[in-house]
Design a protein around this nucleic acid. Structure first.
Lengths: 225, 225
DNA sequence: CTTTATATGATAGTAATACTATCTTAAATA
DNA sequence: TATTTAAGATAGTATTACTATCATATAAAG
């Protein structure tokens, strides 16, 4: 059985649906590769067009600008991850176990999902770590938010917040703790590899250590007092 | 008594010391205003030059490019904050009280420091919240780190990590917890105002709530088990 | 089978950005 | 008085971030 999963994206993110054509899928695939390679600042539609073998104008028919493209692939990632979490935490009754699994999924190197061939999820995971915050750290975050561009991120945060409340219905900061888990799963990873003295994992460089840190942080905090 | 405090900056950050001339101080002052106003992406040396009443070439004599200027003002901010923390936590014996004060200082709107007239610290605080992570989320973070551009941030992190160890010498993640406190003091603030559903403070928009969240998070985590 | 809409390719062009270079003048220093 | 040094003025370049136009191939509709 090889079933196709398609993630339904906010239509305001693109001018033409990249999931609906070969060129569109190439744009996603190659933009993930190029942003990973050069970083978002040095990534241009010209380089992307050359990489694909099409023209700049061709890319602009799909995305208004490169920030929209970043919003698209980041939103895609969060939607995909929420799906992964829903799938993998299904049937786990104990909310603490569910929360620990969520932390593990957030902080672990992603393995490529073969049911979606035009996206390299492990590269995308790296991009979300290094470039993800740039999707909202802008002057136009308010407008982008009105367009619902951050809905997948917020939805995931809500899911995690609800698990936290299941663990302890009296915990006062479920949403802030959820966003802290998400951001720190990524920032501690970035720091571990790039600014190791900001972490306690500079020597081992083990994701398992980040998971241990987050588990400790979260579980002690929500423990019913 | 009006004493002058000068922060000693890493000389590799600039081509000519901006603290050593009137034009240099204007560059700092106006770049803080313009980055605050337009955001870092839309901020250009041309706008800055026009704002000051000098020329683009004039700015380039002080800073190689706008990313170096960002690194400069962010590093300045962390140095200044470490100084504030040292000053204000002086004489507080209890490390838990010291830690709580650090959290408060990190998460509170900064009041302008009148002993340093060319820097508006409250604008700078806002800039560090919205643009600070862009200083290291780049492909050249490794090289920048070799130049010690992040030393003030790391020093502050080490200071906080040491207070954490004073509270509980057996706590296993002092540095990661320190960087988590710093980052979250800022991110929860950004989220509260711009993506409120990622926090529990969207209704009140009170910094005091962020402080309460961080105090709870940190103090429960380091409590000796 | 023909018409027509649609996606893509090819090419050109523009305003702004991120610089670099050079030349002159004014002020500080030796 | 001679000489560095900082700053102003001006010009120029490569790249970026787009917009516009025209031609062609293909697929769907009548």
């Amino acid at each position: 059985m090889k079933l196709q999963v398609q993630i339904r994206m906010n239509e305001a993110l693109f001018l033409r649906d990249p999931q609906g054509s070969e060129l569109g899928k190439k744009i996603i695939k190659h933009s993930i590769q190029l942003i990973f390679k050069h970083g978002f600042e040095a990534f241009t539609f010209k380089k992307l067009a050359e990489d694909i073998g099409t023209t700049e104008a061709g890319i602009y028919r799909y995305f208004e600008n490169k920030h929209r493209l970043l919003l698209y692939i980041v939103a895609w990632y969060w939607s995909w991850l929420e799906y992964q979490i829903a799938f993998q935490t299904n049937n786990i009754k104990n909310p603490i176990e569910r929360l620990k699994l969520v932390i593990t999924l957030l902080a672990s190197t992603v393995k490529d999902d073969e049911s979606i061939s035009h996206v390299d999820e492990s590269l995308l995971h790296q991009i979300v770590i290094s470039e993800g915050s740039k999707s909202y750290l802008t002057k136009h975050v308010g407008e982008d938010n009105k367009h619902q561009f951050f809905k997948p991120y917020k939805d995931l945060c809500a899911v995690i917040g609800n698990i936290i409340l299941e663990c302890n219905p009296k915990y006062k900061f479920p949403k802030s703790l959820a966003s802290t888990i998400i951001e720190m799963a990524h920032f501690q990873n970035f720091f571990m590899y790039n600014l190791p003295s900001l972490t306690d994992f500079g020597n081992t460089k083990e994701e398992a250590d980040i998971i241990a840190f987050l588990n400790d942080l979260v579980l002690t905090s929500i423990k019913k007092g």
